[in-house]
């Protein structure tokens, strides 16, 4: 329990640090939301400074940060100038969509990576191993954007799946079952792009830790006791290889999230990605900071989940936890 508490405390400190950096960098960035208004001769400089005062932008950085912290503690995360409403509810709607996309992609990624990693570690230097290594090198070295566009191009050419948005235009009129089918079809492409890019990395890690576990003396000893190959792979080696893989899970969630911002923009998925992009372009300060904070929350949350899973899986970490008591 102390272990989880420590991790939680660390996560909170990390989030505070991220928010401070966000403020610092947005302060240093040129331009503001009102730049365009200034060019408009019909809006007087007084109106603009009144607006600035209204949103508290005339205050020094420290005061603004303090106010924002207070608002964050009230779960508002500041006020969007463009949408004229608190940031949190605005982000929350989009976050749900992003979460739907990333968790589906995460599940698919691990569904692909674990068996493939185990298989390639078992048949080292085999045909599948070589193919997977080559393919993953290719996917890692090609920018995600290119892969996304390529997948979209293929999908358009053969009309494989709908592109853009989350639902069809007649979504509201559909029955529950067809609604689900419609949503799945729209999910397919962005999930596929994310899962392919992420699997390329994860497969390699799983293969590496499986190779290490398979070469370990305890797996050799178990083989000497006549334990079946399949059992050795999935019960003995995989459980020992799970530790690094689970740590990776937390990172992979973060990786998926940053990847998903891009994929969302490319595929027109109404998640956090397009919102943050739009907010950045229009200098909607608090929306940008809020968006980044939500992303950071995801990442920290993912790592926290991974830590708790490690605790459940690895008896050696459990001991560290009890020693700290």
């Amino acid at each position: 329990m102390i272990y989880v508490g420590q991790r939680l405390l660390r996560a909170i400190l990390l989030l505070a640090g991220v928010s401070a950096l966000c403020f610092l960098f947005t302060e240093m960035a040129p331009g503001s939301f009102f730049d365009e208004m200034r060019l408009n001769p019909q809006i007087s400089p007084e109106t603009i400074s009144a607006l600035r005062a209204h949103y508290g932008l005339d205050q020094p950085l420290a005061v603004r940060y303090g106010r924002w912290m207070k608002s964050a503690l009230h779960a508002d995360f500041g006020y969007s100038i463009a949408y004229n409403m608190p940031v949190a509810p605005l982000l929350w709607k989009r976050t749900q969509n992003t979460l739907l996309l990333t968790t589906t992609a995460l599940l698919l990624t691990w569904f692909i990576s674990v068996p493939l990693g185990v298989w390639t570690a078992n048949w080292r230097e085999g045909l599948l191993d070589k193919t997977v290594t080559l393919a993953s090198s290719f996917v890692i070295s090609v920018p995600e954007l290119v892969i996304a566009v390529a997948v979209l191009a293929v999908a358009v050419r053969w009309r494989l799946a709908p592109i853009g948005g989350m639902t069809s235009t007649d979504f509201d009129g559909l029955s529950e079952w067809t609604k689900l089918q419609d949503l799945t079809r729209h999910l397919a492409l962005p999930v596929l792009i994310l899962a392919v890019c992420e699997s390329a990395v994860i497969v390699r890690h799983i293969r590496a830790s499986m190779v290490e576990a398979l070469d370990a003396p305890y797996v050799h000893a178990a083989r000497g006791f006549g334990i079946r190959r399949a059992r050795l792979l999935f019960r003995h080696a995989l459980s020992a290889a799970a530790n690094p893989a689970i740590s990776l899970l937390g990172f992979s969630l973060a990786g998926l999230l940053s990847g998903s911002l891009l994929v969302e923009v490319v595929c027109g998925w109404p998640g956090l990605g397009p919102l943050i992009l739009e907010a950045t372009l229009s200098r909607d300060l608090y929306l940008v900071i809020g968006g980044i904070m939500f992303s950071a929350l995801f990442m920290v949350g993912g790592n926290l989940v991974a830590d708790v899973m490690l605790l459940a899986f690895d008896p050696r970490i459990r001991r560290e936890g009890t020693n700290a008591d």
Partner: peptide, 8 residues
């Protein structure tokens, strides 16, 4: 080294 660290 001969016992699996994550199995009882």
């Amino acid at each position: 080294l001969a016992l699996n660290p994550v199995m009882t």
